[in-house]
Design a protein around this nucleic acid. Structure first.
Lengths: 133, 133
DNA sequence: TTACTTGCAAAGATTTTGCATCTGT
DNA sequence: ACAGATGCAAAATCTTTGCAAGTAA
């Protein structure tokens, strides 16, 4: 492993992703931190995110909207994706270990983990639709 | 809706995705069909895939490897992603409607559906590892 | 004939990378 | 001083799009 020096930028990126449960992508992280660190460059955001992923502090998540998004690994949790506004939010549910067991019985592949994404309409979009009626 | 004419290319793309359970991405579909239709262009593959998605015949799937992959909608099923070779295969398991119900109780968002991805090591990679030992 | 489809190449969008400079240790 | 970190811009990768030519109905 490469010896890492401390990096204020890297620390801030990690804290931001950890605190923010909307799983922001690189551009959004860049815009948020640019306010505090005007000299910040987008390349550094990408580079540091990749280092954090390598170090196992972040997980890359893809929700199919064309951006790489990230999860600060703390506890396993699932995700909700709004089909209207494409927003992503955490879905706190007990880890369904029985699903992994069930799947393991059906396949010869070795299963280590699983992710679940729920799709639907978020509260905000539901309210918006109500008002339009 | 736009009036669609028949298109041999579009038909072949649909059939290929339907038959092939590895969820190939555009470039792979292009390479496979190029053998049969030498004049084929990558742009047409992308355009036709998008039309099929619009028509509801395909679903876009993202497994986080930087490519858009596709599913010919027939029956709901889950996926297995090999962490080593990144291959994707179907994981046939009864639809876990209870999970959707469970999640619905925990959130105010309206949940319509869910996807599950299992991660681990596929049979081929397992065998490869065995041989190396 | 009309207007959808195609090939080609250029343009877009997101992410990575080379290089000179800066900085933590 | 050394090696990692940064800013900047160019490059790489995947996908979309404009345009002229081809073609199903």
């Amino acid at each position: 492993m490469i010896a890492r020096r401390t990096s204020d930028i890297r620390d801030r990126i990690y804290i931001l992703i950890k605190k923010n449960h909307t799983h922001p992508h690189a551009q959004l992280i860049y815009e948020a931190l640019k306010k505090e660190i005007p000299s910040l460059s987008l390349g550094s955001v990408y580079r540091n995110i990749n280092i954090l992923v390598e170090e196992g502090k972040l997980w890359r998540r893809d929700f199919g909207d064309g951006f790489e998004r990230y999860d600060a690994i703390a506890n396993v949790h699932y995700h909700f994706v709004c089909e209207q506004c494409k927003s992503i939010s955490d879905c706190i549910l007990p880890v369904q270990n029985n699903i992994t067991n069930l799947a393991q019985k059906k396949t010869k592949h070795k299963i280590n983990s699983h992710t679940i994404n729920f799709y639907g309409v978020c509260v905000d979009c539901k309210n918006m639709i109500k008002k339009e009626k």
